[in-house]
Write a protein that binds this DNA or RNA. Sequence first.
DNA 1: TATAGCCGGATTATCGATAATTCCGCTATA
DNA 2: TATAGCGGAATTATCGATAATCCGGCTATA
Lengths: 221, 221
Amino acid sequence: MLHSTDKPEHAKSKNCASDRIKDVILQRICDGTYAPGQKLVELQIAKEFATSQAPIREALSQLEAMRVVETQPYKGTRVREVSRREMQECLEIRGLLEQLAAEKMGDLILPRIDELRERANETVCAARERDSQKYGLSNIEFHRIIVEACGNETLLMVWEMIAPETRMLSFAHNNLINLERCAHEHLEITDAFAEHDNRYAGKLLKLHTESVLIGVGSSAS
Amino acid sequence: MLHSTDKPEHAKSKNCASDRIKDVILQRICDGTYAPGQKLVELQIAKEFATSQAPIREALSQLEAMRVVETQPYKGTRVREVSRREMQECLEIRGLLEQLAAEKMGDLILPRIDELRERANETVCAARERDSQKYGLSNIEFHRIIVEACGNETLLMVWEMIAPETRMLSFAHNNLINLERCAHEHLEITDAFAEHDNRYAGKLLKLHTESVLIGVGSSAS
DNA sequence: TATAGCCGGATTATCGATAATTCCGCTATA
DNA sequence: TATAGCGGAATTATCGATAATCCGGCTATA
């Protein structure tokens, strides 16, 4: 039996119109073409893609499931705005999840340790160059490798559920992150994994993740 | 200004057809009318509700976002099957989340401590009566109170994301739970909260939650 | 002036029908 | 018999149009 395309069950983009459109809209939200809070009008987007309303609704529905947009009945869909408070909440939870991943993965990280170190180095470079977009991409990949490595599908799913907040984080609020310090911490974490000290790696990871934001004290929203 | 219905932002059921249908289907899945793995055919359901295909698709789409059903393009929607392995993964993460809630809530649980104890007592009664459905409902409410109390919206959201697994748990696999022991632990947890020992409550909660399943050892899926 | 209520434009929700795709059984072939 | 390839039924994905709802501005009234 020949598996022509062995996608890992949660395939990225199917070939329906709605899925292609979803990917385009997501891209635009990530790169800032669609700003947070912006309204996304179904028929307007439909016209642009030369389709009817149905695939657009489908796409927006999926994006809502990803928590990237927000829909209110009869009032439409907007790009979701993520408050600083929410970001902090997400980061705290992510820290916990990644710590769990580190402690449970055993040696499963070792086959990917080189890849992990490569991402860590990329974040160091990006931090040096003040390239927050590049930093953001490498950073998210660094962390994803760790969560993937532990082999807990549910953990990965939950982690991805709150990843978008982080993805937008470095784009919209890069001034709130000490890039160089964080990037350096990636190296420390990698070293800890390389030395099989998963417990210490987990601790570092938790502190690293939950303390990313600068000066998110009393000022809410 | 008069707020006629002040729903807390994440209102349960709007009055669109699709939302009403969604609630009905969800109910049927929870009570077992629609078994795990069962296919849900859009036009078939549409006929039953005397609507067109559109609201059904909408409803199924929302249910997919809740991870209650699974959809594959051109292949349809099925009630999601939750493996034992996945349940265990969920419970472990839930334990962690609830422990976090306990440690972060401070005294916020106190205004709801009576309610909490009431739910705990309900689970004890249900366990004594071997009423797994009643147990399941009270149990989920018990835990929800704790997660709600800490006031972290994101934490609640993530928790609810993996709650459905647990909701079905006691219905489909009640024989895998030691109801009496778990119910008794609810009392201990409540006592710890009442004595302001949140750290201990959190520890109990974590152990309680992640060890709910009986005999989920090496046998996967 | 201030305000309740109505009107019209804009947008979403739903409809009924059609196109696209999958699944399964059948047949022809070797 | 075993199997590749072809229908055709079943189902999903999309279409174009219509109904339902929301929002802003306008008007009449006090």
